[in-house]
Every structure is written in structure tokens, then in C-alpha cells.
Amino acid sequence: MTDDRHIIKLCHEGEYELAFNSIVDTYSERLYWHVRRFLCSHEDTNDLLQDIFIKIWSSLSSFRGDAQIYTWLYRIATNETLNHLKKIRRENAISLDAEGQLLASRIDEDPYFNGDALQRELHKAIQQLPEKQRLVFNMRYFDELKYEDIAEITGTSVGALKASYHHAYNKIKEALENADI
């Protein structure tokens, strides 16, 4: 990817501001949708994205270019998102299941959700998945990332990811087939 090579080159040259601006231009939207699929709410996503960009900027000088830039960015975004969800659970004193229901209810309240009934059921079903399955399902199904890249992002083995995706896929499929649409 030309953009990635350019960003890595800028980092090696110590041109961090230019590298960061390139990241913002190239990856803002992808990172937004990645986070949005987890948090559902636009407002929450926007708030968290500010923290993610601050984290990216503060970590940019330590990026050595060993990993692909987008897996590095996804890892930061994913970690921040999971930390945010943990914070929500702690603040509301709720379990993982209850968190899923809370996030699913946000889809109904979201004025920026334009999908049809089936899409609504799909995204609600995704929120009911365990965290790891949700993670792998979103990145594989929507972003169509390779298992190797997802493994790099999540720090999980490819085999474990494949198993998680398989479970997630079947659960979602079953939920949609049983949905009263």
C-alpha cells in the first residue's frame, strides 16, 4: 500500500506530524466504522475516536514499521474500544450479557441507523456475541481482514480466531433465521 509505505517512511525520517496527518487522511473513516460497529452510538464513537487519535499521536514515535500501519492502528483502536466497554460495564455495574443488551438498545435509539429490519437484527445479534467473537466477526465479515492480520491486531492465534468466527457466524445466522421479521 503506497500510503502505508509513505507513512512508515515519514516516521523513519522523524516527520511525525506529516505521518500523523497522512494517517488521519487515510484511516479516519475506517477507524470510525470499526469503533462504531462496537459502540453503535455516533456520539460515543466520536468521543472515543478523539482518545484514539491522541493515543496514535503519542505512540507514533515508537512505531518502528515492523507491523503494517493499519494493523497497528486497528490494534490501538480495538484496545481503546475494549477498555471503553469495560469502563461502561464498571460504571453501570453490568455483566457482559447486559452490556450486549445495552448496546443493542442503542441501535433502536440511534437516529443515524439507516438499515432495514434485517440489518437491524444483524447488528443487534452481533452485540449479543461474546467480546472476542464480536471482534473477529466484525473484522472478518465487514472489513474482510485476513485472519493473519486479525491475529496481529488481537494477539490471538489464527486457529483460535477461525474457531471464534465459526461460532459467531453460526450464532448470528441462527438469530437472523429465528428473527420475527
Binding site: 473513516e29 478523539q50 499521536w57 441507523f113 440489518q119 445466522k173
Partner: peptide, 30 residues
């Protein structure tokens, strides 16, 4: 059912001009 191409489409949207504003805001951090 999951092979329905429609389901892979993004059902979420953002306010108009949001990504431009986001990029402008993000650049300020650097």
C-alpha cells in the same frame, strides 16, 4: 442468510460533513 450482500452494507450514517470535521479536529493533536 449471511451471504446476502445487503447485510454487509453499512447501515450506520454520520452527520453531514462529519469526516471533514473529524480530520480537522484530529490534525490539531499533532
Amino acid at each position: 442468510i449471511l451471504q446476502d450482500i445487503k447485510l454487509k452494507k453499512n447501515p450506520y450514517s454520520v452527520p453531514e460533513g462529519y469526516f471533514d470535521a473529524l480530520k480537522t479536529q484530529a490534525r490539531k493533536y499533532a
